[in-house]
Structures are given as C-alpha cells and as structure tokens.
Amino acid sequence: MHKKNINTGNLYIISTPIGNIKDITYRSIETLKNVDIIAAENINHTKKLLNFYKIKNKIISFNKNNEKKKNEKILKILLNKKHVGIVSNAGTPLINDPGYLIVKKCHKKNIKVTPIPGPCAAIAAISSSGIQTKKFCYEGFVPKKKKKIKKMLEKLYLEDRTIIIYETSNRIIKTLKIMSKIFGKNKKITFAKEITKIWETIKKTKLKKLIKWLKSKKSRTKGEIILIIDRNKKLKKKKIYKKILKTFKIVKNFLPTSTAIKITSKIHDLNKNILYKYILKK
C-alpha cells in the first residue's frame, strides 16, 4: 500500500443537498469553510448554498466543459499544500458529474482523497422505492437515441439485480414505451421525481399503469426523474429460464425457428429479440 504524501494538500469530495438545502452534514459545512478553494460545477448555484450557511470561500469553476483544463490547476494547488473541495450542483460529486480524472491523478501522485459523504439521489430513490435493495446496479442516464435505448434495455432485461436509471422529463414517456415492449407491460417499477424537493413524487406501480398515469397529466413528467426497476425474478443473468427453453423446443418441432421464437416470447411475455439472440448463441 502506498503512503499518502504529507507534503501536499488534500482533495475533498464534498456531498451537498440534492434539493432541500437543509440536507447537508455538519462535516460538509465545516469542510466547505476550511478548504482553501472550492471547485464547483456551477459557481452561482454553489454560492446560494454557501450564502445560506454564511460560508465565505474562494470558488473556481470545475465542470465537464473545462475539467481537463482545470485538472492541472487543481493539481498544482494541491502540490502547493493547499486543500481543495469538489462540489457538484447536487448530491455526491463524480456520480454523473466531473471529478474522476482529478481523483485518478491524485491517487497516482499519492495525494490524499477524502470523501465527505451525504445525499445521493439514486440511493435516496431506491431506499424509498419498495423494491428489493439487497443487490442493485446503477446505470446512470438512458441514451438519447432509440436504438441505443433499446440495446441498453435488452441487456438489462436479463439483470437479476434491481436497476437504477435516470431519465429526462422530455424523453420519459418514449423510454417507458420501449421498456414496456422489452420488460413487459406488467413489470414493477418505481417512479421517483424531484427527491427532497417540494414536488417530490414516489410512485410504485406496473409499467402500463405508470405510462397511463404520466400521460394523464403533463406536469407529472416534469423534474429530475429516477426509475427503479424490479429485478428479473424468473431469469438468471445470461441464462434463459428452463421452462422458456422447453416451450421453444416443443414449438420448434412444428414450426420454423423465427416463428417458434415469436410464439414462445408471447407465451412467456419475453422480448423476442432477447430470446432470438440467446438461441443464436447456443
């Protein structure tokens, strides 16, 4: 194990509120006060938080557009024995936010990296979802293009862990429709929106009911959205359930492969593309 360099400053990964400004730890406030410089994803956004807690400190911009350029500047500050705190607009930095590259550089230079834990939207959503929390996977934001969404969801269909994904308000209906074709209309899902904010909504239901509910009132799709999708209880990862294969083999005795796949997928409410890909690999 490498010893951390005591001749440098520390890099602090500081969690901040995801909505409610009071959701911050005493340690986060103390760290924001005591670091030499705060590297913020959005300076004006962070200033609101600092002003609320009467924190006066130097802030520099650090976001996805200038991350590579600012990495060297931050590294230089740290090597000059000054402490830097990274904050994102909301929640825990580096989760869908910049910071990975500078953390990687710090480990390489043996500069101490200290996490200051706190709010995380994904964890807050799954904890209140009513869906199994023992094992889960976090997939971040859904891709923009339909083909890529389909490809992503087809892979996740075989997932035996609870799935956490983020989606935007303008694409949510489209994504849920694609999801219902792949996962089936009766798939259990929790829709979490605006966690900790005034319009916070957490609704557990079936996919078909969720689509209908969102369509009935446009304002329901507005805000920051997290989807918690129930694990596949019938299928094991990368292994099609025995009953489904048995059905396919029986049907295939009387019909061509493509037709047998279509009929089997209808019987078991399984996406035909997933079954087709699996059959081809065997």
Rank of each mutant, 00 (worst) to 15 (best):
I24Y: 10
I111R: 03
K58N: 07
K76P: 07
I43K: 02
D97L: 03
I182K: 06
N110S: 12
L32K: 03
T247A: 00
K69T: 00
L94T: 06
A40T: 03
I102K: 01
Y166K: 02
K203P: 09
S88M: 00
G19W: 11
S15M: 07
N7R: 08
N253W: 05
P115M: 05
K81P: 10
T8F: 12
A121C: 06
K146T: 06
K234I: 15
K185A: 02
I163E: 11
K249T: 06
I37E: 08
Y138Q: 09
K147V: 05
A192K: 09
N253P: 08
R231N: 14
T257A: 12
E30Y: 07
K238T: 15
N7H: 11
E72R: 03
P98W: 00
I226D: 02
L50E: 11
P119G: 10
L245F: 13
E224C: 03
F254W: 14
N80Q: 13
I102E: 01
N96D: 11
Y138F: 14
K64S: 13
Y276W: 01
K237W: 14
P256M: 07
N5G: 08
K277A: 03
K150W: 04
T190P: 06
I172C: 07
L153N: 11
S258K: 14
F254N: 15
L158D: 10
N89W: 04
I43D: 01
T8A: 15
I18W: 12
S127F: 05
T247K: 07
A124Y: 05
L214M: 02
N80M: 05
S216Y: 03
K150P: 04
I226M: 04
I102G: 00
W213T: 00
N110I: 06
I261K: 10
K144A: 08
I202K: 14
L210V: 15
R27K: 07
K242Y: 08
I267Y: 08
T92K: 04
F254P: 14
D36K: 13
N66C: 00
K155N: 10
A260D: 09
I38R: 06
E67Y: 01
I126A: 01
K236H: 13
R161W: 02
K22L: 15
